[in-house]
Write a protein that binds this DNA or RNA. Structure first.
Length: 490
RNA sequence: GGCGGCGUAGCCAAGUGGCUAAGGCAGAGGUCUGCAAAACCUUUAUUCCCGGGUUCGAGUCCCGGCGCCGCCUCCA
């Protein structure tokens, strides 16, 4: 049984076979660094993070490149607005992005190149296109001539005639075809520029990804990914210029993630309907690891190719679902059945889930099903725990859940970490109606819980209930054990 | 206008020809408990937007509607 991946190029799921057995070379289009990242960017990063992790679980050696576009019209514009240089702007937002990704638990890529560090490679690539007569100059700008590349538009399923019918293309009379795209733009006053055979200027957007991917992965590689809005024109242009230059197939598997929407509409800068990753963390009543995990669980709960509607309510629903896993972890930590009456049943339960989990992930990275299998495992382990699991069995169950979780970047915290992660009173918490509960230090809670245990021992239930209500006001919930002791959580 | 996608329970979301339509959240009843909480058990879609068709058999394939969304311009 092998991994099957939906390939945008062929519009079907295909058995994954890397060019070099045992190795995977993948490139994902990263961000243009001119502003804070929103949840849509987070989704893309997370999806490819999980794909990368799963490929590694499948024992592939993965070489994973995720780039930054650090020169571009929007960066230049922002730099003008702020009286800074384009380099300062891109540097700043690359750092902000790295911080968001770290908070989200997105693993660093093997190489995270900045476009401006690859100008010579871009120039070399463009020279090859010029030599092969795929490029022409107009007023110092260099264009790729799409008519010379008959397969242009194949990835997006478009052809030039149909594209022309769409009246949205602003026709530049100087170009031979409206869809010819810039490989090199001549410098305008005040703009960042580099020397080139065509005069000082800067690269077009598409050429950077071709140059960086080829530099790090070779002229043909396995996986190229990005958001589905990049299919056209960006990825079609990449294919055209790369294959025109090399005469080799550029990429074997094209993977595109669906959008995050707000009220069913694409989340985007231009519509202004976006949440930044930063504000999710800032407004969350929980500390970073817990918020990150809730966001991850939420984002992976929908298949990566489908649209996903974001709402704070849905986010906290994910948090509640995770609470149940961590509740199980708490009980597994306690492991109160030395005789382990149900131990013998555990291996079969684990084996079944192992199988189902991998089957789900092998089917085009079906994380919703994979998560559902973890939920089934959670329920199964709960049942066995009730029947009696030894300390060793509890540990192996916990370990197994952790190792499945690791693939998705979930379930890596301890119960204590999960549950002690409320942030003290702040401004209105995102999505939490009413006042945020004040936070009581653990020691205070332990003291009150001890007093309550004593009250219960003396059958002073009025007092016990009073203490419980008091704690509830601080967002602390009590669970009494059969042996008269109590555990708490918030 | 061209190309593509989606429409499954109160909500979210898998399933793309065949056992009883996964799983989560929310709800109801029960076991447990001093009462709770948590957990567990039971329960919540005779039915998958609508209408035809193919098939022994269809959310699943085909045709025609309706609704929503995306790409065709920068965009994860």
């Amino acid at each position: 049984m092998g991994l099957r991946i939906y390939n945008t190029l062929t519009r079907q799921k295909e058995l994954f076979e890397p060019l070099i057995p045992g190795q995977v070379r993948m490139y994902v289009c990263g961000i243009t660094a001119y502003d804070l990242s929103h949840i849509g960017h987070a989704r893309s990063a997370l999806v490819f993070d999980v794909i990368r992790r799963y490929l590694e679980v499948k024992r592939y050696e993965v070489r994973f490149i995720r780039n930054f576009t650090d020169v571009d019209d929007k960066i230049i514009k922002r730099a003008e607005q702020e009286g800074a240089s384009a380099g300062e702007i891109s540097e700043r937002f690359i750092a902000e992005y790295q911080k968001d990704m770290e908070n989200l638990g997105v693993l660093p890529a093997t190489v995270e190149p900045n476009a401006t560090e690859y100008i010579p490679q871009m120039i070399t690539l463009i020279e090859r296109l010029v030599a092969r007569d795929f490029a022409y100059v107009v007023d110092g700008d260099l264009y790729f001539e799409v008519r010379r590349f008959p397969r242009y538009g194949r990835l997006s399923g478009k052809n030039l005639e149909e594209l022309l019918a769409g009246a949205r293309v602003e026709v530049d009379e100087r170009k031979r075809d409206p869809h010819d795209f810039a490989l090199w733009k001549s410098a305008k006053p005040g703009e960042p520029s580099w020397e080139s055979p065509w005069g000082p200027g800067r690269p077009g957007w598409h050429i950077e990804c071709s140059a960086m991917s080829m530099e790090h992965l070779g002229e043909s590689f396995d996986i190229h990914g990005g958001g589905e809005d990049l299919i056209f024109p960006h990825h079609d242009c990449e294919i055209a210029q790369s294959e025109a230059a090399t005469e080799k197939p550029f990429v074997r598997y094209w993977i595109h993630n669906g959008f995050v929407t707000i009220n069913q509409e694409k989340m985007s800068k231009s519509l202004g309907n976006f949440f930044t990753v930063r504000e999710i963390f800032e407004k969350s009543p929980y500390k970073v690891p817990v918020t990150a995990e809730a966001l991850r669980y939420f984002l992976l709960g929908t298949h990566y190719r489908h649209p996903l509607d974001f709402s704070d309510e849905a986010l906290w629903e994910a948090k509640r679902a995770l609470d149940r896993f961590y509740g199980l972890f708490q009980r597994l930590d306690e492991a109160t059945a030395p005789q382990g009456q149900a131990d013998a049943l555990l291996p079969a339960v684990l084996e079944r889930v192992r199988e189902a989990f991998h089957q789900a992930m092998d089917d085009d990275f079906n994380t919703p099903v994979a998560i559902a299998e973890l939920q089934v495992l959670r329920a199964d382990v709960n049942k066995l725990l009730e029947a009696g699991l030894s300390k060793e069995a509890c540990e192996s169950a916990r370990e197994e859940l952790g190792s499945f979780g690791r693939v998705l970047g979930l379930l890596q915290l301890s119960f204590r970490e999960w549950v002690s992660q409320i942030i003290p009173v702040g401004s209105g918490a995102l999505g939490l109606t009413g006042a945020r509960p004040r936070v009581l230090p653990d020691a205070e809670i332990d003291k009150k819980v001890a007093r309550r245990i004593e009250a219960r021992r003396q059958k002073d239930f009025a007092k016990a209930d009073e203490i419980r209500a008091e704690l509830a006001a601080f967002g602390v919930t009590i669970e009494d054990r059969p042996d008269g002791t109590s555990r708490w959580k918030r």
